[in-house]
Design a protein around this nucleic acid. Structure first.
Lengths: 152, 152
DNA sequence: ATGCAATTGCAAATGATTTGCATTATTCCT
DNA sequence: AGGAATAATGCAAATCATTTGCAATTGCAT
């Protein structure tokens, strides 16, 4: 994981190359995203950013998210409720498990599943461009979880 | 796969149990769905149904889809474009591969992937309630596909 | 056939996201 | 530093899929 400053600097470079500008609001949103350890939606990002700059508008958040996504700086996910949620992209590929009770999102990755997906696609005559895998799950009672024996 | 008449009859029975009614529009929509071999969205269903009954409204389609879904008669999927698409539920579980070029949807199922998903969830302390797996893919050139040798 | 509640069609409401436009802010140049 | 050119912003209005309130209609049990 890289630092916020570096992320901002890298992004500023990308912008320059595209003839675009690094604005206060983009800097702010980038910072919010770097500090986020969850998967906030546009309104969530707006709320957090608004505390630092009450002149910021929700449209700018949306526009910035679109820009960041097109630059590959963030990833957009739409889980079951349909709203777009975002996370920064400086991490390895992973899929998501969503706790149906709390909405909490847990990340995981499985090379085995990826391999199977590729195999299935190939058998159907396709090559995968991208995929979406979400597990909607419920927490198991503790007894069912892997742990040190203690009370048996 | 069961026939349309049976599907309608079964559904009518479910309705009766719930104190609900079998209306002309529900019958029509059920028929449209049974005849569909793709994954139409509400507007698509509306368009097809409208040809048989021009008094039908889009709201009724939406309301009926919701009802059918709550009765387990159909499944709703929201692929990347966000709109809800429907398919009847009298078939075994499967996932979807979407051709990114044509939008065509291919169904597939993989017990191996399902097993891996369950294993991953268990390791994280969860049990899967449902999942969503979509492969966005591009057709391979024919040469790459399994086929009888012919022109080499 | 009659009545009551479920259902419908229509129009208006919602909610997330996008967009037009006038204003403001960045960047580049000197 | 000062200015011009134009990208970016804020705001309000527009979209788009989906939902909902309500008055009119229809299905169904009696």
């Amino acid at each position: 994981m890289i630092g916020i400053e570096q992320r901002v600097a890298i992004f500023e470079g990308q912008l320059k190359q595209a003839g675009l500008r690094m604005t206060q609001q983009r800097r702010l949103i980038l910072r919010i995203l770097a500090e986020a350890h969850d998967h906030p939606d546009a309104k969530g990002i707006f709320t957090r950013a608004f505390e630092h700059d009450p002149t910021l508008s929700l449209s700018t958040v949306y526009r910035t998210m679109k820009l960041l996504e097109s630059q590959g700086a963030i990833e957009r996910h739409a889980f079951e409720d349909g709203v777009s949620r975002y996370e920064h992209a400086d991490q390895q590929h992973h899929d998501h498990l969503i706790d149906v009770e709390t909405g909490q999102v847990v990340e995981f990755s499985s090379p085995e599943i990826e391999a199977l997906q590729a195999k299935i696609a190939a058998e159907l005559g396709y090559e995968i461009v991208r995929h979406r895998l979400e597990l909607y799950a419920r927490k198991l009672p503790k007894a069912g979880r892997k742990r040190v024996k203690k009370d048996v």
